[in-house]
């Protein structure tokens, strides 16, 4: 075989860099949606490569539910300092205080859906015309339909039945004032690809992804971390377990798995043997068959 071909990780990397550069070329005020999770860390890492030796030309936008893992915030602040980029924080607490949203009630109340309003408000206030996300098509069936450049109308809504066709590598980011785009440079990566790449590039990730001892309760088939925001129900028992997280989100709904994987190598091994999807431990997706689709249509990540 000729030596002039790329292996699959290099090809995915090249595709993502191409998309990030198109975003920069076609939009006036693009940002990276930064959650502190591995996918948005990966996108940030790829942006660093795409513009080297220049600085990343995007600000990071963090939609802060107020229900954070302290480790996530620490990681975020260190990364922002290291890269010398601007950080924009959209605060769900502020949206609540301003009366833009009302806190959910009940046992499984979360601030997950409230983020949509905070995100869209921030996009509008900051005049952001493209928000780059770490969404992947393998995550969920609604996400499987996403374009690289995904149009949002002036209400921030996604119309999956009426998307612009995306051919070859020609990306159409044209939009009217008030509309915006979401760009998904790692659309074609799977969870396994992400971990293999993180390992290969030795990318720093929050310690939460690595097995550690933590106080947790068993709820909806996963280990929910004990925090000041968690209401322990009757019959629930706080236990100490070696766990790690496969995805990171709002601390009240992100379930961990029992694991001994305390290095990147062991995580890659564990993920490749995994028989459950990573969002299987996210209670936000379990609410209904179309939970993600419904939220995405309204403007979710």
């Amino acid at each position: 075989m000729s030596k002039y071909y790329l292996n699959y990780l290099d090809e995915l990397e090249s595709e993502a860099i191409y998309i990030l550069r198109e975003v920069w070329a076609q939009f006036d005020n693009p940002v990276i949606l930064f959650s502190g999770g591995k996918d948005s860390i990966l996108v940030t890492h790829l942006a660093k490569k795409a513009f080297y030796p220049a600085r990343i030309p995007f600000a990071l936008l963090h939609v802060d539910t107020g229900h954070n893992f302290p480790e996530t915030i620490e990681f975020r602040d260190n990364l922002v300092k290291e890269l010398g980029v601007k950080l924009i924080v959209g605060s769900v607490q502020e949206s609540i205080n301003k009366g833009r949203v009302v806190e959910e009630r009940g046992k499984n109340a979360t601030r997950n859906a409230l983020q949509i309003i905070t995100l869209l408000d921030t996009i509008e206030e900051q005049k952001i015309d493209c928000a780059i996300g770490g969404g992947r098509r393998d995550e969920e069936k609604a996400r499987a339909k996403e374009r690289f450049f995904s149009h949002r109308n002036d209400f921030g809504e996604w119309d999956p039945k009426n998307q612009r066709p995306e051919l070859w590598n020609l990306l159409n980011g044209k939009h009217f004032e008030g509309e915006h785009f979401r760009a998904f440079p790692i659309s074609n990566w799977t969870e396994m690809d992400v971990w293999n790449y993180i390992k290969r590039e030795n990318i720093q990730i929050p310690s939460l992804y690595i097995a550690h001892e933590r106080e947790v309760v068993w709820r909806s088939n996963s280990w929910i971390p004990v925090s000041e925001f968690l209401k322990i129900e009757e019959g629930e028992k706080v236990e100490k377990k070696m766990i790690r997280f496969r995805t990171l989100g709002d601390i009240t709904i992100t379930g961990g798995i029992e694991s001994e994987a305390d290095t990147l190598g062991k995580i890659v091994e564990e993920v490749s043997a995994m028989r459950k999807t990573e969002r299987g431990d996210r209670s936000d997706d379990k609410r209904s068959e179309t939970a993600m689709e419904d939220r995405k249509k309204q403007g979710y990540f």
């Binding site: 191409y18 550069r21 198109e22 070329a25 080297y52 220049a54 600085r55």
Partner: peptide
């Protein structure tokens, strides 16, 4: 696609 012009000392 685009032109990279770092404004840093080094480059």
């Amino acid at each position: 696609q685009t032109v990279l012009r770092p404004q840093s000392e080094e480059h």
